[in-house]
Amino acid sequence: MSSCESCLVRNRAICSALSQTEVNALNTIGRHRHLEPGQSLIWEDEDSILVANVVEGVLKLSTGTEDGREQIVGVVYPSDFIGRPFGGKTGHSVTALTESKVCVFGRRDFDEFARNHPALEHKLLERTLGELERTRRWMLLLGRKSASEKIATFLLDMSERLVDPTCQSADDGALSRFELPFSRQQVADVLGLTIETVSRQLTRLKSEGVIDLPSRREIVIRDRAELSAQAG
């Protein structure tokens, strides 16, 4: 694997807790892997054999229902950690939504390295607690919020994770432009809505001047304060 010094997420990923010497040691057990959209890295219910840092791209976490349908249960972005360290089976599949690059480690090698480097174990614990908090917010989103609140919350979350700071307007820092890595049907599946409801809510937000829709997947947030209010 190429040197970690040039890694795009070096200062944000779990390895940010390590010294340069420790990073160099971690570098020896990892490798980069490129994924095309639709290509899976981890499969649900299989033994945990690898873990990874996301370097570029967006990936979905999904699980299958008894009747064969797919349910998207989460999304990961650059600097996020995926996989289950310290044994067990994976609870969901991990599949690229966009062209992606991940830094992959054999799970056993990573486990041994983590045990010998408490700072990395501490970072893993922080990430796990953060993921637990996001899961609790997601439960509120799916269980209690209305369709309009779900869409508004979803757009705010996407903007926080996907917006390139160079695309921010110099005159209005609240203006955000990003491209959804989901189709509208996938947005509907994620939020437990119908595709008609998703389209109707997006159209309503556009007509109210809260967002703009330059293309089917591109979103521009024009009034973040109002979108936050509608998110509840």
Rank of each mutant, 00 (worst) to 15 (best):
H92F: 12
G87V: 05
I219Y: 04
L50G: 01
M158P: 05
L141S: 00
H32A: 02
E44A: 00
T194F: 10
D157E: 13
R224I: 13
P181I: 03
G83Q: 01
S79T: 07
P37S: 08
E36L: 11
V198H: 03
R127D: 11
I42K: 01
A229K: 15
I42W: 00
S16G: 00
S207N: 15
R108M: 08
R69V: 03
A152V: 07
S199N: 14
S159V: 00
N27R: 11
S207W: 04
I14L: 15
D189A: 10
I42D: 00
E149L: 07
F105G: 03
D212T: 09
K206H: 12
G30E: 07
R184C: 06
I72E: 01
L180R: 04
L193Y: 11
A188T: 03
Q71L: 13
G30Y: 03
A174Y: 14
S159H: 03
R222Y: 03
D164R: 08
G38R: 05
L125M: 14
K145P: 00
R10V: 08
T194D: 11
F178P: 00
F86V: 04
A52R: 04
D47S: 14
S6Y: 04
H32N: 10
L41T: 05
L140I: 11
S169L: 07
A52L: 04
S48P: 03
K145G: 04
A114E: 01
T63Y: 00
R224E: 15
C103K: 08
S40K: 06
R134K: 12
P214S: 08
Q186M: 14
C7N: 13
E160Y: 09
M139R: 10
A13N: 14
M1R: 10
H92P: 03
F154P: 02
G68L: 04
V23T: 10
M158A: 12
L35V: 06
S6K: 13
E22W: 00
D109G: 05
T65A: 05
G106Q: 12
R161D: 04
E46S: 09
E160T: 09
S3T: 15
K123R: 13
R10K: 14
V220A: 01
K101P: 02
F105V: 02
V210D: 04
L132F: 12
P118T: 10
F154V: 03
G106H: 07
P85N: 02
D111T: 07
L162R: 06
R161F: 00
A96M: 08
E112Q: 13
S176N: 11
R216Q: 12
Q39D: 08
G87D: 04
R31Q: 09
D189S: 12
G91D: 10
E44V: 03
S148I: 13
R134M: 11
R115C: 14
S93R: 04
S93F: 05
E66G: 06
I219N: 04
H122Y: 10
E5R: 12
H92E: 10
G68D: 03
L8M: 06
S215T: 15
L140N: 11
L26H: 08
A174T: 15
A231D: 01
D67K: 13
G30F: 01
I82Q: 00
D223C: 03
E112I: 11
M139I: 13
S228T: 15
P85G: 02
S169G: 05
L124R: 06
D223N: 12
S40V: 02
I221T: 05
